[in-house]
Amino acid sequence: MRSYVADLHIHSCLSPCGSLRMSPQAIVDAAVDRGIDVIALTDHNTCEMGPVVAHTAKKAGLAFLYGIEIQTREEVHLLAYFNDANACNALSEEVYAYLPDVRNDPEYFGDQVVVDEQDNIIRTEEKLLLNSIALSLEDVTERVRAHGGLPVPAHIDRGAFSLLGQLGFFPETTVYPIVEVWGATVPNECGQRAILRSSDAHEPEQIGRRTSVLTMERVSVEEILLAAAGVGGRSIRSEES
């Protein structure tokens, strides 16, 4: 059992709103600099940059979780975490198929570039990634779990793109043992759910501005769920930094 400092909500240069400076090496360097042990990459509606950031992270001794931040039909942002690239890719491909065929306007939204470990641009994503897919929150949640992923509603206390903002309260039919909270105050609606805080970094300087401490056996989706339930001394702690 050990305690991991975690920042599980980070955007790369592939997200239109993510800075072009958010290259794999810049992300990993910032995380190491801030004493973080585990990161997750959570670009909007894609995980294409996952493998290269994972490789860069592992070389620097950082643990890595594959992730994606999906924007559902209700304009709710749902984070999803996976142990392996293939499962995350499979989910990401389903998400992409339901993403409207709207072109990105880089002047307005920002560039969407896939880069390699040396910051070379491999390709430019033409479809606007920051858009709602044509699937409901419930449907997406089921698909994430079907691929072995962990769904976590993002920044539920924010005014925009949050579960509580868009839907008013937690739907009865879907269970989320873990939710991400942005501010210092945990909304009453959260009840007994475990609270995760992460940076939602779009610039290298923002990495680690919020973190959580995960006490568990190893870094995996299963262990995080056990930590949320407080099994065998595991825990999730977070505070606004």
Binding site: E74, G165, Q166, L167, G168, F169, P171, E172, T173
Partner: peptide
């Protein structure tokens, strides 16, 4: 279409016009 706003502002005897089809509209 934001249910949190509807919860805060809607009055009895209002018609609520929306494109939100999520199940929570019934409870709201």
């Amino acid at each position: 279409d934001l249910l949190s706003i509807v919860l805060a502002k809607a009055q009895p005897q209002d018609m609520w016009i929306t494109i939100q089809r999520h199940q929570n509209i019934v409870a709201v």
